[in-house]
């Protein structure tokens, strides 16, 4: 019987985990241990609901409500001097509880502090665009849409950015295989030559460890190359790896290894 693989997460899995193994945690500390973060958190808490806040690896992480994101980032930019949105993207938790986790990585250059603002949305919901606050969110949100299919409300140009416009599927979802689906496998052939050319071109060879000594087309015959389609018998002559033909070349000086010089010091 074939082993069952869950359809909602087709990424690589550890093939063995000790049943008594309990993964340790990266230590979290209270926000009060850092006074700058504590002041920032108090300012945010005065206006918005903060569900959870802690410091992990020198950066504060706060969880807020999804519809507050524009307000929180506006407050942080205008009053708390977090002037740059370094990064934003999503994490796929669809297999676990059908949600996406969205994070915004903020940087304050005057305080030298970084805060990660996070919230959860359900599958199919959209986030509010912060493109009006930070122009960098323009491309980040497009990338998030491209990779996860999460749309942003009020975004001026909500289209794919990395994949072609006519691509199907969102590659960074856990349900999307690393090597692509059926559509991805034939994308370039269908687009350039049409579906009827599939048979002539053949499927992609994804097995990188495959070596076939009877294959006259690919790279298994280094040094013993033969014309395409030759029947391999096993006693092919070794091909010469010389730069020039034996008898010399018309109008060109013969290259001799003896006459060449080797430079010891490249910086001479």
């Amino acid at each position: 019987m074939r082993a069952y693989t869950p359809k909602d997460d087709v990424q690589a899995k550890a093939y063995y985990t000790d049943r008594y193994y309990v993964a340790p945690q990266v230590p979290k500390s209270e926000v009060e241990t850092d006074e700058v973060f504590a002041a920032d958190l108090a300012a945010i808490k005065a206006r918005f609901e903060v569900k959870e806040a802690y410091i992990q690896v020198e950066q504060m992480v706060i969880f807020i409500n999804p519809h507050d994101i524009y307000g929180v980032l506006e407050l942080m930019r205008d009053e708390l001097a977090y002037t740059q949105l370094s990064e934003m993207s999503a994490i796929d938790w669809l297999a676990k509880d059908n949600t996406f986790e969205i994070f915004y990585q903020m940087l304050s250059m005057t305080k030298r502090k970084r805060i990660r603002v996070k919230f959860f949305i359900n599958n199919g919901e959209a986030v509010d665009s912060v493109e009006k606050l930070f122009r960098s969110a323009d491309w980040s949100e497009r990338e998030m849409f491209d990779m996860f299919g999460i749309e942003a409300n009020n975004h001026p140009f909500m289209k794919r950015i990395l994949m072609p416009y006519d691509w199907q599927g969102h590659p960074l979802l856990k349900s999307y295989p690393l090597e692509g689906d059926e559509f991805a496998a034939w994308y370039e052939v269908d687009k350039i030559y049409g579906k009827e050319a599939r048979e002539a071109i053949g499927p992609e060879i994804r097995d990188t460890a495959r070596v076939d000594r009877y294959d006259s087309e690919r790279f298994a015959r280094l040094g013993f190359e033969v014309p395409k389609g030759t029947k391999i018998t096993g006693d092919e002559p070794r091909n010469s790896q010389e730069y020039q033909e034996e008898g010399g070349v018309f109008l060109i000086k013969k290259y001799t290894k003896e006459a060449s010089t080797i430079v010891d010091d490249p910086q001479r």
Binding site: M163, P171, Y176, P177, L178, E179, G180, D181, A184, E188, V189, I192, I201, E204, I205, R206, T208, R218, F219
Partner: peptide, 19 residues
Amino acid sequence: ANTGGMFNTYATVQGVDRI
């Protein structure tokens, strides 16, 4: 360009000789 190399992913053409 030969085979797709280390990028055995959805986005790369597995060898330019397919085109």
